[in-house]
């Protein structure tokens, strides 16, 4: 039955809840590869080809989990704008296909970093005003605003529905999933978690404490309260 659900979900392109992992089939089987959706990637490739025509040294690195390139390096694109954010947005608007289906208006400025003759505008991806967890786009420019490189984690998150789960209930679910006692809630953020296999609307609940001191992030789906993922964020 689980196998049937898994197959159906795969056909529909849905993310499966964690319990499906725990009960995955343990029998031998053959599996097949599927093709990328043509349009977003093809448009990105076309835009890249145009850039390469103008600057032959332009090169790209692609990821299996995003339609657009992860890196485009070695460009030389003039931009207009009074600020580095405006110049980066000017570039992104003109080459939006490189974002693989993500709109530049869904990017919020995180910061502009400066070092050794580079100005890097870093944007955080959002969707309908909700931040997409851990997904950033960075545009590297010369001091006079010529775009040299693009680096992007952005992924399209169309069709994600907001569930009815409250943030209070999400915190309760997260504490339950974390187990034990002594967790303190640092903060709760409404997010979209666009991980491998699909995007989910939910809450990122940051907890502090635990058996081994941890900064634990638990993502809880707003549709049904399931735990999407859970991991320690502390650097040691």
């Amino acid at each position: 039955m689980n196998r049937l659900i898994a197959t159906t979900a795969a056909l529909l392109g849905l993310a499966l809840p964690s319990p499906a992992i725990a009960s995955a089939p343990r029998t031998a089987k053959k599996v097949t590869v599927s093709r990328a959706p043509a349009s977003a990637r093809q448009q990105a490739q076309q835009t890249l080809a145009e850039l390469q025509k103008r600057t032959p040294r332009t090169s790209a690195h692609w990821s299996i989990s995003q339609p657009g390139p992860h890196v485009v390096a070695g460009m030389r694109v003039l931009t207009k704008g009074k600020t580095y954010e405006a110049r980066a947005r000017h570039f992104l608007r003109a080459h939006e296909a490189l974002l693989g289906g993500v709109k530049q208006r869904d990017l919020r400025l995180d910061r502009v970093s400066v070092a050794h003759g580079r100005r890097v505008a870093r944007f955080a991806q959002s969707h309908a005003g909700t931040p997409v967890l851990g997904r950033f786009v960075a545009v590297s420019m010369t001091p006079d605003g010529v775009v040299l490189h693009l680096s992007s984690d952005a992924v399209p998150v169309n069709g994600v529905k907001r569930g009815a789960l409250s943030s209070q209930l999400a915190v309760r679910k997260a504490l339950l999933a974390a187990g034990g006692t002594g967790w303190a809630v640092k903060h709760v953020t409404r997010v979209i978690d666009a991980q491998f296999g699909g995007a989910v609307d939910g809450f990122a609940v940051d907890l502090i404490g635990g058996l081994k001191p941890q900064l634990l992030r638990v993502v809880v789906a707003s549709s049904d309260g399931r735990i999407v993922r859970m991991g320690d964020r502390m650097k040691r």
């Binding site: 990821s63 890196v71 390096a73 851990g134 960075a138 590297s140 040299l148 680096s151």
Partner: peptide
């Protein structure tokens, strides 16, 4: 350092190398 500024959360060895060389 120039390359590092452009890195994101999902930058791999290969992607990093591309930015470093560029």
């Amino acid at each position: 350092l120039r390359a590092l500024l452009t890195f994101t959360n999902h930058t791999s060895f290969e992607a990093a190398a591309k930015l470093i060389i560029a």
